[in-house]
Simulated scan of single mutants.
Amino acid sequence: MPSGQRARAQAAAITPGGQAPEHERAPADRVRALFNGHRLSPGQRRIAQYLIDHLTEAAFLSITELAERVGVSQPSVTRFATALGFSGYPALRDMLQPIALSAVAGTPESSKEIRRNALQAAVDAEIANLENVRRLLADTDQVLDLGRELARSVPLTVLGLRISVSLAHYFAYAARRIHPDVRLITEGGSVAYDTLMQARAAGGTWVLAFAMPRHSKETLAAVQAARSAGLRVALITDLTLGPLVDEVDVALTAGTGSRLVFDSYAAPGILSAAVLQAMADADPERTQARLEGYEQVAEQHGFFL
């Protein structure tokens, strides 16, 4: 399909759920539709947000002016346009200008309202991701089976690098309340390799890895190292296909919110909590004893207000 034609086709198509054609929607929504379905970097999302927030002006800026306004380089603007399927920034601008003119001709939305709607759209996208997780959990067998396997692995290794560190920290922190030996890996390279080897030597059988956009080569290398050491690997990620999924024994997927400059992780978070629940249910006596023991220590030392 010629450059930019795909985006034009999107603008003319009926949106999912039987909504009105793109040309009947609000200008800001029509611009947002151009970005849907594309994995944009944080810098590219800044450009996208500027175009949404300042549509009537930004659609007529030169590439130099737009780069200066956003605070990025001119090549970054070009890469942004090509990431959307256009031949370059001029082709993207040609697509934006009629939408901007329609905004001027109609009742223009204020920047404040556009920004508020953009934030609401981000929440709506996360709700859709949560609905997908709900459908995934309709058949509980996979999660319950994984919970039993992770509960039996002593030690249990949790892996999360770069942006996935926060999810790995959350899971490991909670898992330590119900599991006797949880080892957390948040650095790649030889550090990850050493920890994986030690976990296997100590009797561990499973690694739970997190891989959220953008997927790092370090994560793939660590997963491969775990497999070569004889460990089985479960993966919580946003993709159903790819080199990481190909390397693991079990993959659970949950979409990330990509409407803002940085991804949000409501769906991976609830999926992680579901796996923790499955671990707790796999050995209820151990779970209860460890939770009661922790509460006694917390009360004794006054951990909480």
Rank of each mutant, 00 (worst) to 15 (best):
Q198A: 14
Q19M: 09
R39Q: 11
T186F: 00
V233R: 09
S76V: 01
L260H: 11
A121Q: 15
T186K: 01
S228W: 08
A67E: 09
A202S: 12
A81I: 02
A266C: 04
A122N: 06
D141Q: 15
V70K: 12
T107V: 13
A234W: 06
L150Y: 04
Q142K: 14
L40Y: 05
A7P: 08
V223L: 09
A274G: 03
R148C: 06
R46I: 06
I163C: 06
I236G: 05
R134C: 08
A229F: 02
L260A: 13
L235I: 08
Q224R: 15
D263C: 11
N132W: 10
E24H: 06
D94N: 12
Q19L: 12
T240P: 01
L137I: 00
V154C: 15
A282H: 11
L235C: 09
Q49L: 13
Q5Y: 09
A26T: 01
L161Q: 00
N129H: 13
S272Y: 07
Y294V: 00
L235Q: 09
L276Y: 11
F80D: 06
A118V: 13
D139R: 10
A168L: 06
L241V: 15
I270S: 12
P243C: 01
G242N: 07
R39W: 08
V250K: 03
A222K: 04
P27E: 07
T237E: 01
P108S: 12
A100R: 00
R286Q: 12
T205M: 05
R290Y: 03
H23D: 10
T56P: 04
A209H: 05
M1V: 12
A225I: 00
V261A: 07
S62C: 05
A226F: 00
G203N: 05
D145V: 00
R25K: 11
P2I: 11
I14C: 04
S62V: 02
S153A: 09
V191G: 01
S3Q: 15
V31N: 08
A229T: 08
E295V: 04
T205Q: 12
V70E: 10
H215A: 02
R162W: 03
R116W: 08
Q300K: 10
H38I: 10
G257P: 05
E247M: 10
S153W: 09
W206Y: 13
R115G: 01
I114V: 14
E187Y: 07
E149T: 01
R6D: 15
A12Y: 02
A211R: 10
I114K: 10
L156T: 05
A67C: 05
T256D: 07
G230A: 01
G230P: 03
Q198D: 12
F35S: 02
V207S: 08
L146V: 07
L150T: 06
Q5C: 05
A175C: 06
V182E: 09
